[in-house]
Amino acid sequence: MGLIEAVGLVLHPARHRPDVIGTIATWARARDIEVLGTPAEVAGYDRPITALPPAQLARRSNLLVSLGGDGTMLRALRLGCEHRIPVLGVNLGRLGFLAEIDVPELDEALCAIDEDRFTVETRSGLRISTADREVVAFNDIALVRVPGHGMALVEVQVERHPFVSYAADAVVVATPTGSTAYSFSAGGPIISPGVEGLLVTPVAPHSVFNRALFLSHREELALRVLPTSSELGVEVDGQLVAHRSAGTVLDITVEPAAARVVRLGRTTYYQRVQRKLHLTGSAAETT
């Protein structure tokens, strides 16, 4: 008897891969493991998959398998967050920062996990409260200007005291995981996922101070929409979840070890970043 009794699938909505689902179903049948999925995502597959609502799928699963890219992986991390379910990321298409394996390695990887030959890498999250719910982000939370309206004028408060104000297209608060996403595209640094903290990066800043900040996870962070700012959108991992008007204060807290990512020891974080960003050599080697 292995570690896994039920494996939950999180699928990319636009990538229909019956060959990959078949690999998982065959592996599961040989080990008497139940395969679970949400009704909308597994409806197109003629395989023995138990369809469950997301909350039930998370409660029943011992392992989540993300089939897609980083966006699918982020959904899987959010799904598994409450019950701290380990997530295995499988690349379908473009290489991502979070996925651990490619499709040809899937059967071997599932066997290794069921036989307890793997490690877990924890990832921190960011929590905010919107009008009707609390939301956890694993990449970033951003206050963004609404197209056609004025700039984002945002005051950064640290430990309940104003520290600096930005005038920008957006202000991004990222986890170390998210340091290679929106923040990186705005010129922010790459942060090791082994660090707990918050990275604050302005996007296209028009203020005198235009640098990123990195704060300890123990320091209280809040973003205040300044009185002269236009209404701003609140994006969580790239998804618009709310709008906030002038005077609003958003408290953002770190959730240490909010997610668990399966690692099989085949690549390091920095090797994955090298591959994704095509960092093949130093400047000296290219001159």
Rank of each mutant, 00 (worst) to 15 (best):
Arg75Val: 03
Ser165Met: 07
Glu82Arg: 15
Ile191Glu: 10
Thr286Gly: 06
Ile101Gln: 03
Arg29Tyr: 01
Arg78Gln: 15
Gly80Tyr: 13
Asn91Met: 04
Arg133Gln: 11
Pro86Trp: 14
Ala259Phe: 05
Arg29Ala: 12
Gly238Ala: 00
Met73Val: 03
Ala14Thr: 13
Gly178Tyr: 03
Ser192Ile: 06
Arg244Ile: 05
Arg47His: 12
Leu88Asp: 03
Ile24Lys: 04
Tyr270Val: 01
Pro53Gly: 06
Ala258Lys: 08
Arg15Gln: 15
Ser129Thr: 14
Arg266Asp: 03
Thr122Ala: 11
Met151Ala: 15
Leu74Ala: 09
Ala76Asn: 11
His217Asn: 11
Glu220Arg: 14
Arg17Trp: 02
Leu198Phe: 11
Ser183Trp: 01
Thr38Ser: 04
Pro18Glu: 09
Ala168Ile: 05
Pro147Ser: 04
Ala99Leu: 08
Leu52Lys: 11
Ile190Cys: 09
Ala109Asp: 00
Ala168Thr: 06
Val42Phe: 13
Glu105Leu: 13
Thr253Gln: 14
Thr286Cys: 03
Val172Ala: 07
Arg60Leu: 01
Val156Cys: 11
His12Ile: 03
Pro205Asn: 08
Leu250Ile: 14
Phe97Ser: 09
Ala181His: 11
Asp132His: 09
Ser66Trp: 08
Val172Cys: 04
Val164Ile: 15
Glu231Trp: 02
Tyr166Lys: 05
Leu198Tyr: 08
Leu95Ala: 09
Ala167Gln: 10
Leu92Val: 06
Leu67Tyr: 07
Arg224Asn: 03
Pro13Ser: 02
Arg127Glu: 13
Gly44Tyr: 01
Glu134Met: 05
Val90Ala: 00
His12Ser: 08
Thr177Asp: 10
Ala257Asn: 11
Thr268Val: 04
Ala212Asn: 10
Asp102Tyr: 07
Leu57Ala: 02
Val195Tyr: 09
Glu82Cys: 05
Gln239Phe: 06
Asp132Val: 13
Leu240His: 03
Ile4Pro: 02
Glu5Phe: 02
Pro189Asp: 11
Phe214Arg: 15
Leu110Lys: 00
Ile85Phe: 12
Ser183His: 05
Val136Asn: 13
Thr130Pro: 08
Val120Gly: 01
Leu221Ala: 07
Ala246Trp: 01
Thr119Gln: 10
Pro48Gly: 12
Gly89Met: 10
Ala259Gly: 07
Pro86Arg: 13
His12Lys: 15
Pro54Ser: 08
Thr26Val: 14
Thr122Lys: 07
Val65Lys: 11
Ala257Leu: 11
Arg94His: 13
Arg224Ala: 12
Arg94Phe: 08
Leu92Pro: 00
Leu232Asn: 12
Glu196Pro: 03
Glu285Tyr: 05
Pro256His: 10
Ile85Asp: 08
Arg31Lys: 06
Phe97Asp: 05
Thr175Ser: 10
Gly22Ile: 02
His16Lys: 13
Asp169Lys: 11
Cys111Lys: 00
Ala28Trp: 05
Pro86Glu: 05
Gln157Arg: 14
Ile252Trp: 08
Gly188Glu: 06
Leu213Asp: 12
Val42Ser: 10
Ala181Gly: 09
Val158Thr: 13
Ile101His: 00
Val136Tyr: 05
Ala112His: 02
Ala51Leu: 08
Gln271Ala: 14
Gly178Phe: 03
Thr268Arg: 10
Arg123Leu: 14
Glu34Ala: 09
Glu231Asp: 10
Trp27Thr: 02
Phe118Leu: 01
Leu198Ile: 09
Val158Ala: 06
Ser192Asp: 15
Ala99Phe: 07
Leu36Glu: 12
Pro227Asp: 01
Ala131Glu: 14
Tyr45Lys: 11
Leu79Cys: 01
